[in-house]
Amino acid sequence: MLKIHDLQAGIEGRKILRGIDLEIKPGEVHAIMGPNGSGKSTLASVLAGKKDYEVISGTVSFLGKDLLELSPEARAGEGLFLAFQYPVEIPGLSTTIFMKTAVNEVRKYRGQEPLDAVAFLKMMREKMALMNIEQSLLSRSLNEGFSGGEKKRNEIFQMAMLEPRLAILDETDSGLDIDAIRIVSNGVNKIRNKNNSVLVVTHYQRLLDYIVPDFVHVLYNGRIVKSGTKELAFELEERGYDFIKNDQPLEQGA
């Protein structure tokens, strides 16, 4: 589904990713862990197409297409979804209108007929029930004044609405208490199936108790330095990131 080969990228002339290799197959859940500043969020942003980041070299193919050549909206159309670490508040834009526009634009991209108002509302009600989202949240402006938990739940709700093939969760657990983590994880688990995949980017192991990964990768200094199964996450939790850092040769000139 997703094949990343020797991806190097940076921002404002500063190289952050120094050669990432990663392959995710349909139905798999991968977790990327790593200390602060290791490049986790950069990887998520580069995959989603944020223009501030500059790809220096490498390739990324998504469902057989050259992902790096696609605009952010085309990536969404192809089935990529990024749950933001910091969802943006947009006062004055109703969550419902935003969602309807997004759903129908993605449908258009996929060659499907747009949903009419009735079909859209029906779909929205189903997904709201799935995600434990209250109606009142959707009549408000997009993310405006939402609590941290509400924002993250809204991200997962959007994911359910857009039905992506690959969902990237960027530090979705940050700022959430344990109850909120459980709700958000349940939402993710409910929409997992053998055809779609999840890439969980997180600092802590705790989210992985709920969204159980098939593979865990440790990102450090812009490279994946260790890969393993979920046991690797436990090891990191126990020993901290220092044992990874200590295993690494000193960066040339860093």
Partner: peptide, 21 residues
């Protein structure tokens, strides 16, 4: 970027944001 990442093309994203403003 938030709107584009949800599949909304630039032109429509702009209309939504101006309307919100």
């Amino acid at each position: 970027f938030y709107l584009e990442s949800r599949g909304i093309p630039k032109t429509k994203a702009r209309a939504l944001l101006v309307g919100a403003f």
